[in-house]
Amino acid sequence: MDLREIKELLKCKVLANDDKLDMQVDCICASELMSSVLTCSGNNKLLVTGLNNLQVIRTAEMSDIPAVIFVQNRKPSAEIVELAKEKEIVVMYTKYSLFTVCGMLYQAGLRSGQDDN
């Protein structure tokens, strides 16, 4: 599944790097605990989170996570979007809750990137 399909599915608005939506997603990290996200290995990960601060982008950067979705209309600040642009990380947000987003992505065939830890 690519980011464009996920964007359509979750009715996301894209705030950073909308030229990278062709990227394939293999697994999901859904968490508000950044230390937990940092244990997530594997490639082509998508981070789904309700947390809304600069450290979300820093965590994505360190863990080689190329895309982040902020849930429940928690639109990230301009500062967060700027850092994401600089680090070439796709940033989107959706109106759906973390639970609903996870359910929809699971139904679409995606799985957690953290179950093997």
């Binding site: 508000e32 230390s35 937990s36 940092l38 244990t39 601060n53 979300v56």
Partner: peptide, 15 residues
């Protein structure tokens, strides 16, 4: 509330 302080930092560093 900022997403840290879950007691995973030092074990993560070791891992």
């Amino acid at each position: 509330e900022m997403g840290f302080g879950a007691g995973m930092g030092l074990p993560n560093m070791k891992n």
